[in-house]
């Protein structure tokens, strides 16, 4: 039975379980794990009245994080609902990441050249990551693993 269940699903599930925990504990906006490097101002400031955009994004990200947490547990246990929840979370994360990338500065504080290119590439990496996640969770390999027995 377990031979039909790919290990990568469980690894992704564990990562998706850790990410919302870290996001909720530390108060990141949660649009991709790279936000730890990006939001140096601290997004909780948004909740405490800095700006409406921050507040909306923070609330949305908290909701998405909670859904991600539930979905990740379901994925680790190979429950069919987990796959759908994780796909939903991944789509939300892509949207959130696009929104955040369009609102935040790409400045690296004077560091240029290759570092800057790497930095921008890293900023957009969550989109690629979650795109890959959606693709992988749509494949028949994963779909079969989540068939209710």
């Amino acid at each position: 039975m377990n031979q039909n269940k790919p290990k990568l699903v469980r690894i992704v599930g564990i990562i998706e379980l850790l990410r919302p925990i870290l996001g909720l504990v530390t108060g990141f906006l949660g649009a991709g794990f790279l936000s730890i490097f990006i939001f140096q101002g601290g997004n909780l400031r948004g909740i405490f009245g800095s700006s409406i955009l921050f507040t909306i994004l923070a609330i949305v990200s908290v909701i998405v994080n909670v859904i991600a947490f539930i979905g990740a547990i379901a994925v680790i246990r190979y429950k069919p609902i987990g796959r759908k929840l994780i796909i939903f979370v991944a789509i939300s994360m892509i949207i959130l990441n696009i929104v955040q990338n369009s609102f935040y500065s790409f400045s690296t504080g004077g560091l240029g050249g290759l570092f800057e290119i790497l930095w921008i590439a890293l900023r957009f990496f969550p989109i690629i990551y979650y795109g890959a996640l959606i693709y992988y969770f749509m494949t028949s390999e994963v779909k079969n693993a989540f068939q209710p027995n």
Binding site: V12, I15, F33, A132, Y136
Partner: peptide, 20 residues
């Protein structure tokens, strides 16, 4: 494509462990 996707997922997972 599947290999590429799996590669991206594994690399993403490794990158994610840095902030943790």
């Amino acid at each position: 494509v599947e290999k590429l996707v799996k590669g991206v997922l594994i690399i993403g997972g490794i990158i994610f462990l840095i902030p943790v």
